[in-house]
Amino acid sequence: MAQAQSPLEKLVAETVELQTTQSGLRGACPFHPDATRGLYIHNGRFHCFSCGANGDAIDWWMRLHGADEATATAHLARGTPGDSIDEHSNKPC
């Protein structure tokens, strides 16, 4: 049976290829060159063991798009895909 994705998992999956692990999901962190795939997602939180990036869906969107918390919160509340309409979405990872 397929497991439903959390909002964070959906956001991360837009930019990162994720693999299932025993404790959650794992992928290459987009915030630095990451050959070790040090990014982990578990219980609605992300953490990169290489660069230390961590947080929830709002933190992910803020960091990925260079936005402030109010912008990220408003964007996520609209349910808009993470890489669409905002002017911050043109910023490189």
Score class of each variant (00 low, 15 high):
K91F: 08
Q3C: 09
E9P: 00
G52E: 06
N54P: 01
I85A: 03
A74E: 08
R37C: 04
A57Q: 10
E17L: 08
Q5S: 14
R63H: 12
R63G: 09
E9G: 04
G66A: 08
G55R: 04
I58T: 09
T80D: 03
C29Q: 08
A57L: 09
S6G: 12
W61Q: 07
T15D: 13
C93T: 08
T21K: 04
T80K: 02
N90V: 00
P92F: 01
P7T: 07
H47R: 13
T20S: 14
E14D: 12
P7E: 11
A2P: 15
R37T: 04
T21P: 06
G44D: 15
L11Q: 14
A13V: 00
I41V: 14
G24H: 09
Q3W: 13
W60H: 01
C48S: 12
H47N: 10
T80R: 02
Y40H: 15
P33S: 03
P33Y: 03
I41Q: 05
F31D: 02
G82L: 02
C29I: 10
C48L: 07
D68R: 06
A2K: 15
H75S: 05
G38Y: 03
H88C: 01
L18I: 14
E87K: 05
T36F: 00
H32W: 08
G38L: 04
C93M: 10
N43I: 15
T73P: 06
C29A: 12
A35I: 00
C93W: 11
R78K: 06
G79A: 11
T15G: 08
M1P: 14
S84F: 01
R26C: 12
I58Y: 03
E9K: 04
P92Y: 02
W60G: 00
D68W: 03
D86M: 01
G24K: 09
I58M: 06
G38R: 07
Y40E: 15
E9L: 12
S6W: 07
D59I: 05
A67E: 06
V16W: 05
T21D: 04
A77D: 05
H75N: 02
G82R: 02
H42E: 14
L39H: 10
R63M: 13
Q5T: 13
H88E: 02
P30I: 08
F46D: 05
R45G: 07
P92M: 01
L39K: 07
A28W: 08
V12Y: 11
V12C: 09
V12S: 10
A35K: 04
A2D: 15
R45M: 14
C51L: 03
P7V: 09
E14R: 13
D86N: 00
T71I: 07
T15Y: 06
Q3G: 09
G24T: 11
S6E: 12
E69I: 09
K10Y: 04
G79R: 11
G79V: 10
C93H: 11
H65L: 07
V12L: 13
L39Q: 11
R78Y: 00
H47F: 13
P92S: 01
C48Y: 09
A67W: 04
G82V: 03
F49L: 12
A28R: 14
R26I: 06
A4R: 14
T71R: 09
T73L: 14
Q22C: 02
D56H: 11
C93F: 12
N54Q: 14
I58P: 01
P33Q: 03
G82N: 02
L18Y: 13
P33G: 01
H32D: 11
D56L: 11
A74D: 10
D34C: 10
Y40S: 15
L39C: 09
E69S: 10
